[in-house]
């Protein structure tokens, strides 16, 4: 029962991990992007539709990534190049992304003969859970480590690479410098605009992958409108929970995933609480983490200092 709970938590946490890693990439470059929900929705729509038409997991992933990137490109253009307010732009992107996702989804539904959209068998098999002979059947470790679909491993891998990128590479150091103090980075010869674009676009693409997970896996291969359903917003909170560290994001996502499924596993015979209570828990935890980090006054575990502020070199 407990093993089942843990592995369900990992499943539920995976889209959050994509979203969180994507948002960390944004914030490390100094951009508070509230458009995660929108970018995930765009990825969800593009991923599902590409899978539906081409019956290929590679094309579906690629489409989801590109769609997330497209959302990020809108945001990046507006905030980096045209210096638009980051909060407003992000919020708008969220509304826009969800809107276009539902629009396309609805349009496709109406034009399908049976009024349902279902992924072809071939692709459903590709994204179903792994079954590695000899490993997946080991008790406890099998279900915990070797019985997930490829998305789960991809999400963890991306987060790991992201952590190495920021902690151990020169480019990562440069990006962190931009997020902390773009003026200092600029004066040190770092190409601020170029690096910001790269990080925001890749981050958006990663969010898009998370969206595809929502539409293709959580909903069991059948299209439902509003597939992301607020996961993007939880991801934004998770960035704070993970204190802007990709490694911590991995655990954070799975913890939040656990909270979101707790209502199905917590024995109602002990305490009967309304489901809404469990839905609320992740946010209470985030608030607590915020308070604790601010009491601890750690200078390191804070949001990048210039996050949310656009950089204009000639500003006096």
């Amino acid at each position: 029962m407990f093993v089942k709970f843990l592995s369900a938590a990992v499943f539920a946490g995976t889209p959050l991990l994509f979203g969180t890693t994507g948002e960390i990439m944004n914030e490390k470059a100094g951009h508070l992007n509230l458009g995660v929900e929108g970018m995930m929705a765009m990825g969800a729509c593009a991923g599902f539709m590409a899978g539906f038409f081409y019956d290929s997991i590679i094309i579906a992933l690629l489409a989801a990534f590109l769609a997330g990137m497209l959302g990020a490109l809108i945001y990046a253009l507006l905030t980096i190049t045209f210096m638009a307010n980051q909060n407003v732009t992000g919020l708008t992107l969220s509304i826009f992304g969800v809107g276009i996702c539902n629009f396309v989804g609805e349009f496709m539904l109406l034009n399908s003969p049976s009024n349902t959209l279902k992924l072809p068998e071939h692709i459903t098999a590709q994204i179903s859970n792994l079954n590695i002979p000899g490993l997946s059947t080991v008790p406890v470790f099998g279900p915990l480590l070797f019985q997930y679909n490829i998305f789960v491993y991809l999400a963890a891998l991306i987060a790991l690479i992201c952590g190495i990128y920021y902690n151990h590479t020169k480019t990562g150091l440069n990006v962190r410098a931009i997020g902390e103090n773009p003026g200092a980075a600029d004066a040190a010869g770092i190409k601020v605009t170029k690096l910001k674009y790269i990080n925001l676009l890749v981050g958006g693409g990663i969010c898009g992958l998370g969206g595809a997970y929502c539409s293709m896996i959580i909903n069991g291969g059948v299209w439902m409108n509003n597939p992301v359903n607020g996961q993007g917003w939880i991801a934004v909170a998770l960035v704070i929970f993970a204190s802007w560290k990709p490694y911590r994001a991995i655990f954070g996502s799975f913890i939040f995933g656990a909270f979101s499924i707790l209502k199905y596993y917590f024995p109602k015979t002990i305490i009967s609480l309304p489901n809404a209570f469990y839905d609320m828990l992740p946010f209470i935890i985030t608030a607590l983490v915020l308070v604790i980090t601010s009491i601890r006054k750690s200078k390191e575990n804070q949001q990048p200092a210039s996050c949310g502020v656009n950089y204009y070199r000639e500003e006096r």
Partner: peptide, 19 residues
């Protein structure tokens, strides 16, 4: 000063350089 407060002296010196 154009320095990143949360970085060490070394990271501040190294940022933006090649290698």
């Amino acid at each position: 000063f154009r320095l990143v407060e949360v970085f060490s002296a070394m990271d501040n010196i190294l940022m933006g350089t090649r290698g």
